[in-house]
Amino acid sequence: MTGEVLAFSLFSAMAVGGAGLALFHRSAIHSAFALLASFLGVAGLYLNLGADFLAVTQVLLYAGGILVLYLFGLMLVPPEGEAPRPGRRALALVLAAAPVAIFLIAFLARSSWGDPSRLPEPEGTVRGIGLALLTPDGWLVPFEYASILLLAALVGAVHLARRSAPKDDSP
């Protein structure tokens, strides 16, 4: 039990600390690298919950895919130096966000989310996830629909990104 608590503390510190650093660091590139810590921390939390497939997917997709694209994009943007030191505006934002944070913490502290033992024991095997995704009475429809959703996103992105065709294209 203590090992689990220790791992949880470590990983959540990584996740929250990385996210905080990403938010508050003045250089965009450093923020992006701080996200790596955050992603790995979240992956660790998944692992702690027995969701091994999810944890590895988190690393593969977020750290290996999305973060690389972020960094690539950041390097294409001409450097503008570091962001100015947070001034009064930031203070105002923090003051505005603080009540929300306090509310959420208080809410989490006083709420009863039911009995955790009611939840099924995590199995986290690939086989289980594969069967759940691809059996007709499981998640087949959302799984297949998600592919069309991604196709739509892809078509939109490609259309926006590619150079305009020459104007004399009309028949």
Partner: peptide, 16 residues
């Protein structure tokens, strides 16, 4: 889950 996917699918199409 299905509802959210549909919501997101409609949304993505609209943004593009």
């Amino acid at each position: 889950m299905m509802l959210y996917l549909g919501f997101e699918g409609l949304g993505l199409a609209v943004y593009a």
